[in-house]
Design a protein around this nucleic acid. Sequence first.
RNA 1: GGCCCAUUGGUCAAGCGGUCAAGACGGCGCCCUCUCAAGGCGCAAUCACGAGUUCGAUUCUCGUAUGGGUCACCA
Length: 563
Amino acid sequence: MFGYNAHGKVDIMDYNKLADLLFSHIDKTPADYDSVYPKRELGEEAKVTRFAPSPTGFLHIGGLFAALISERIAHQSGGRFILRIEDTDKKREVENGVERILEGLLGFGIKIDEGFTDFDVQTGDYGPYKQSERAEIYQCFAKELVKKGMAYPCFCTEDELSAIREVQEAEKLLPGYWGQFAKCRDLSFDEIKEKINSGLPYVLRLKSPGSEDRKVSFKDGIRGKIEMPENIVDVVILKSDGIPTYHFAHVVDDYLMGTTNVIRGDEWISSIPIHLQMFYMLGLKAPKYAHIAPIMKEDDGGKRKISKRKDPEAAVTYYDEEGYPADGVIEYLLNLANYNFEDFRKANKNAHWSEFKLEMNKMSNSGALFDLVKLNDICKNKIASYTSEKVYELAIEWAEKYDKELFTLLTRDKDFSVAMFGFDRNPDKPRKDIGKWNEVRNAFSFMFDELFDGKYDEVENVSKEDAKKMLELYKDMYDENADNSAWFDTLKDLAEKVGFAREVKEYKKNPEAFPGHVGDVSNVLRVAVTGRTKSPDLCSIMKTLGKDKVIERIDRAINALAI
RNA sequence: GGCCCAUUGGUCAAGCGGUCAAGACGGCGCCCUCUCAAGGCGCAAUCACGAGUUCGAUUCUCGUAUGGGUCACCA
């Protein structure tokens, strides 16, 4: 019985025998899996996408970006979004790796339909969704390749491999295991059997039918048509531990799981010829690809990919710790993905981001610098769009995790805190001073005696004596029930009493006639109550604080001024 | 180095042969205003370079430069 090698020539090697030698424990064929994992019944437009990270640490902002794009593409088309775990490299694997990825994704509101949908939960009919649990599936496909003479065991050692590399470097040849360098390609059955029997470790390599002077071309969903030389390297498909490399796992999994669109980082673009070749050799249809540009970071005036090691903001946990609202981060990312997201946001002030129609061909194909300033702006607007109650809920949720003291203060009196978050929160032009929850403490420190340090900003144009006089007078005029305009009228009266202008305009017309104006007077009161010259609407602050507290603060300020 | 990809203001970017080259963030200024934050109005700031093609190039072609990615039993 003879087999055929990749070149179609009759070979003395019996590939079936080799396949059985290598994979005696595998009795299934790829066809068997076709019935285990039948074709999905989804609409024609429905896209099946996946996010396939390896559990090597925290979720990267670039990973979140890729996951978001994939999730959008799936869900906007009525398709499915899968989370698959690529844990084929046990050396790099990290404890709780899967949990950390899930935490990140779920925390940002990414909805997963299939695969790891929640902690310790795998859902879906195409599992397992963890590659380490799929070993025999890959081996089955690998066996098939061996049967067809398209894959072979390679016993080369690391030293031999690096020797090859040295020669190739010296002669400026394409590096890799190919052509005349692929020593193990032509091993006879007996040689292989002998090596295996003597316990030599080996990997399984693809017998690449590629030719250097042929091109493959494919259409990338983001970049358009790309043409590259065919792969000629006999890449490793199964490592010596029987676990597949990324390339092979990708091909097998995405075929079996019915992935229609592979969306991943553009670092994969150069592996496309390998992947396409594998699909071809296995007789499978390749999915559509889209490669997204990495998120970059400014570095010494240059750009570089944002890095897990160097940049704290690379980790998705950073945004949680800082207290950026999750929706703000997602909207920033969406903004980076499609320039017209901001038009959508302008036109639909309160719509959820999932209502935005993301378009693949609007994605930029060069990496964008991550802009924390812009993120902050988006988050400010996001928070400004929330009701006081929602701000309260989100703020305490954050504080509970990262600022226990603030948490107890905020939850001590919910109505008080909600009222506080309501300062200037009128729907037409809400206050926009908080971009992330860790700014709450400072923004509202004057609302809590525990945070109020009793330091006073200086008020320009007003002497200590005048200030003291104003405060003393004000104590008698203060009506805690006055509405905003009555409250302000009182201040005008006070201004008049101490010889200050009732109106700012009046003062501006004739600055010599007055030592200052109502604005200065109100600032004296503001500093007495809050310690600062800058604050949200003072009237609201005073009302929320309550008369006793306000009087207490005024007395305290008078004492401070007396010193 | 080979192979891919990219290059419009400080940043994100629109643009698809003829535009005073959008918009957003940031910056600056003015207005509004009890202080801020907002809001309104305005200003400054961009087509990497060199050849072509064309009546006309930011747009098309080719080079150059610069930047990025990739060349593992890592993904």
